[in-house]
Amino acid sequence: MTPLPEAALCAGVALADLDTTLWGQWMISRPVILGSILGFFLADSPEALWQAAWMGFWMELLLLDILPIGGAVPPNGALAIGGTLLLHARGVPIELCFLLGLGLGRGFIPLETKLRQVRARFLRSLEILSAKDVRRLDGGLKRIIFSSMGLQFLATFFFLWGSIVLASPWSLWLWKVSPDLLKGTLQRGFETIPWIGLATFLYAMRPR
């Protein structure tokens, strides 16, 4: 894939990620939805499309019982599936991509935490605006909301794009030099992911 479409897809993932917390919560950013949508852009055959869709589904199940309750910052599912599929499009084997994608989703937590701290600074400007001219507060609120979304978009985009650009050559090299024992372990371990997903699903739906 050439850099421009790849960057555009990263931007698409970052845009969809706004749905996670900041705008709407329509569930477009859920791995199963985003994975399937990305599949339509990345896949060159129905097999590849279904592979992307199933990857999204298993990722969805693995993240199913992590709930965004209170101040908890859960792993970023959009980045996880976006990273998985975009790395795979660069030729990294899917077993490795899936784990790297999960790591990417988890690795975003410190940055997300920082972003939530940074957003608190917007409150000062709102208080000042309210004291100065409260009639203009609505405009101020809209500006702050737009800035908050812009900041989140840029952080997600650069995190994903940077991670893919940096991680793909290293992962390809690592895969090449890895012993068969490690490759076999990853392949066998990867085969169990649907079972773990199914167990997570049944646990999430357990009658209480």
């Binding site: 705008w23 939530r116 701290q117 957003r119 709102l126 507060l137 609505d138 909301i145």
Partner: peptide, 27 residues
């Protein structure tokens, strides 16, 4: 309400979103 969490922050969480939703009534 679609922007309810747009400025979610650790200090006061959804306060900005809440005020944004309520603004048409308040004004």
């Amino acid at each position: 309400t679609l922007c309810f969490q747009s400025v979610w922050n650790f200090e006061r969480m959804q306060n900005v979103g809440f005020l944004f939703c309520l603004w048409p009534v308040l004004s």
